[in-house]
Design a protein around this nucleic acid. Structure first.
Lengths: 294, 294
DNA sequence: CCCACCCATCTGCGATGACGATAGGTAACG
DNA sequence: CGTTACCTATCGTCATCGCAGATGGGTGGG
């Protein structure tokens, strides 16, 4: 195998134009160069690629036809390598590790990842879902490059963040709960029943505060939703959790005079590792889709 | 893109051995050549591929890791091209057009084609099934390269042939036919009932001769089998047709004192176009599988 | 401290491959 | 039937590229 990529490129060009001289003109070479290059390629491969009937445009032989496909593929692959190098040169990531809060709404995230796969086909992805504290922890431990979480107060200083959108909280109880009969409730009524509150170990996380004396606590919106389904109390939950097909028919939305502020979805990353093109692209995608979602 | 296939090969070699000098030794080059080649490749791509910490073996950078995969793929593709050229140089076909008698038993043919696809992945196949005369006609008209048919007397002289195996004929009738009650029949009894005979326009084809005065004729074993199912007569059919799952439960095999000679399966091709490697390989495959089938 | 080993760099040289010119051949046209 | 306008193959010349070998800096082991 003594032949060149250049020879393959010439081969493809000549085959497509059915002319040696035309290929030479297009590729800014002397006609003789094309002629000898093809001749050498044919010698190397041990096969005639073109039928030269003088005066008639050169025609591919049967072997030439078959090898043209192979040559095209080699050239294509070489261009791929170059394109990949260009991307990497511009800081494109090889691997993007995304950590997200497990309660993040799925549709916009999955849509964004699908689009990302199209825009950066060579990018390798690693996904991790975790409870609220996990996302920041993974970023700090350099186990993730990009995080998707709900804004809270205890954000470490090493992390940069950007708000993407917000998700409203609603007050819900189970269909069999005493409050289910009421359409409008005020804070005093809520205080009389058990509250199911999402509270990670540290306070300062979003999701609302304790209202009455009876409170069960948990670290997951989904776990709390399950408890609500069993009429163990009322809860404040993000609207997308309430509207999950699994929960929706059995949950009752209450109109109350007060609900916690909406959850703010934030993108988070290490201040000392600036985002590459893929991460920035993904951020934009998240932003627009979350906006459409909210 | 000024880099070379050679540079890529060096890159892969160096990465696999984690050593410039080792790669130089293996590829019979001077160490300096490897060093400069990699340096030039890095300059072309605009990226460092290796981390050279003096004394420690060179380690791939993250970009190097990613580009190594791309480079491997380019080299692999180039080798594919060369292998293909070698095959074509040895007369390997680009396209193989097989024409077969529609009554040919499927399992051995399909098994052989499956094996062919494995042995010659790049080969393009075109299949055609036809009645008995069609196979030879297609070969003569250069619409097929290889034929699979049952031996008969009117084989054109332009065609070469090779016997692959034989398939026994059996005497059958439908379950509701008067003969179905008999286990053994002789020629005189057969002559008293309608015979369903496979006879293409020209005589001299295999499948038996007319026995009694009442005969229906057709050009397909399958059409005749359908008539037998409807108790319209008895027939001589190849054993593999009789044993088709569709027919088997409703057909009755008769033991008779005489049946036509077995069908001889033959491979046929044009004398003026010698078979290529793929065709010869397929012929061997047919032969062994038909032998196992019979 | 010396030796073995590794990688980068420099220099000289040879093979490779480009160019331009030339030759030969076909098709269209007057 | 010559002329013209193409096309491709071949040849001679020459620059360039990239190899080999030598050199030097560096590291780790005996």
């Amino acid at each position: 195998m003594r032949w060149n990529l250049d020879q393959l490129r010439l081969f493809v060009e000549v085959a497509e134009g059915a002319s040696f001289s035309a290929a030479a003109r297009r590729l800014q070479r002397a006609q003789s160069a094309v002629s000898t290059a093809i001749a050498l390629l044919e010698a190397d491969l041990g096969l005639p690629l073109f039928e030269r009937s003088s005066g008639r445009p050169p025609r591919l032989t049967e072997a030439g036809q078959a090898l043209l496909e192979e040559a095209r593929e080699v050239v294509r692959q070489a261009q791929r390598l170059d394109a990949r190098a260009l991307g990497l040169r511009q800081g494109e990531e090889v691997l993007l590790r995304l950590a997200q809060d497990e309660a993040m709404p799925y549709p916009p995230v999955l849509d964004s990842l699908e689009a990302l796969a199209q825009a950066f086909p060579a990018l390798e992805m690693r996904l991790a879902s975790g409870a609220q504290g996990d996302v920041a922890r993974r970023l700090l431990a350099r186990q993730a490059d990009l995080g998707l979480l709900f804004r809270h107060e205890h954000m470490p200083a090493e992390l940069e963040r950007r708000a993407l959108g917000s998700i409203a909280m609603v007050t819900v109880c189970g269909a069999g709960h005493p409050l289910a009969a009421r359409t409008v409730v005020d804070r005093r009524e809520l205080a009389r029943h058990r509250q199911l509150l999402v509270t990670p170990p540290q306070s300062g996380y979003p999701g609302g505060e304790q209202v009455g004396p009876q409170v069960w606590r948990g670290d997951s919106f989904y776990a709390m939703a399950e408890l609500v389904l069993r009429n163990l109390g009322w809860a404040w939950l993000p609207v997308h959790v309430v509207q999950y097909p699994t929960y929706r028919p059995s949950l009752v939305e209450l109109r109350s005079d007060w609900t916690p502020p909406p959850l703010v979805v934030e993108l988070v990353w290490r201040r000392d590792e600036p985002l590459g093109p893929a991460a920035r692209w993904l951020a934009e995608c998240f932003a627009t889709r979350l906006a459409a979602f909210g």
